[in-house]
């Protein structure tokens, strides 16, 4: 049972690895320049030169999907990492030190969670009008909270452990205890949370891009590609289908990996 689960995790991780690899080496794999327009090859059906066909401006959809993945996945990872770091830091401080700072920060977290996340994100991204950076800020405002809460509750329980009191008695400073004892013990649950957040974040970011609140054209990004090509879906469905399928594939792979890792940790 456990071995089978491990195997499935490895397979899902391998799939995620392949996705990341393709996207990182987009420059090598892509057959065409994703931004080069070609007036002679507008909305061409998939063929040898253009595996996924071309879009309204004659750009290679396959290359754009590869480079678009770079934008989408990089932004997602960056945002999750940032929330992870900020949330963990805040959560550890709150859990370890307690007191007014803890109460204040957790109160802020409660208030942030009491508003609908996507509504806030749409408004903030709409007002900031700052492209992908704006969209990331808009989502990041509420994203750190789940990490902070998780880190705080784990820090609270780690604090009760005997080795923490002995470290305090040994005269170690709070910072060194956090670095050597608290943080390493937090990594596993927080990493699991980060994995499960990847899918949601990708849905959020590509949703904002789809609404025109993410990347600024002509930058390739899956959500905005789908949004652009939607207008001529009747003539060139491939320009919509290709980025749609890779979006689904990526989210499915990361969600599946997250679910498996969560299941694995629960079975411990």
């Amino acid at each position: 049972m456990r071995r089978q689960l491990k195997l499935r995790i490895l397979l899902a991780a391998a799939a995620a690895g392949i996705l990341l690899f393709t996207v990182i080496f987009a420059g090598v794999i892509a057959p065409n320049d994703p931004y080069a327009t070609n007036a002679l090859a507008i909305r061409k059906a998939p063929c040898a030169a253009y595996p996924f066909g071309t879009d309204n401006l004659g750009r290679c959809v396959f290359s754009r999907v590869l480079f678009g993945g770079r934008t989408t996945i990089a932004a997602t990872f960056f945002l999750v990492l940032l929330s992870f770091l900020a949330g963990t830091f805040i959560g550890m401080i709150c859990g370890y030190c307690g007191g007014w700072a803890d109460r204040l920060l957790m109160r802020i977290a409660d208030i942030l969670l009491s508003f609908p996340q996507m509504v806030v994100a749409i408004a903030v991204a709409g007002i900031l009008n700052g492209g992908m950076k704006g969209a990331m800020i808009a989502l990041g405002i509420t994203m750190w909270v789940s990490f902070a809460r998780l880190a705080r509750s784990h820090t609270l329980s780690i604090r009760q452990e005997a080795y923490i009191s002995s470290a305090i008695l040994a005269g170690k400073s709070g910072l060194s205890i956090i670095c050597t004892h608290v943080f390493p013990n937090l990594l596993a649950p927080l990493f699991t949370n980060a994995l499960t957040q990847i899918g949601t974040t990708m849905i959020g970011l590509s949703g904002l891009s789809f609404l025109g609140l993410g990347v600024i054209p002509p930058t390739a990004e899956w959500g905005s590609m789908i949004s652009e090509a939607r207008a001529y879906i009747q003539i060139a469905p491939w320009a919509v289908i290709a980025p749609s399928l890779v979006t689904i594939l990526t989210i499915v792979v990361f969600n599946y990996l997250g679910d498996l890792v969560m299941e694995y940790r629960e079975a411990l």
Partner: peptide, 9 residues
């Protein structure tokens, strides 16, 4: 795992 804009498209 499906974003709703994708489903609608």
């Amino acid at each position: 795992s499906l974003p709703n804009f994708l489903i609608s498209v």
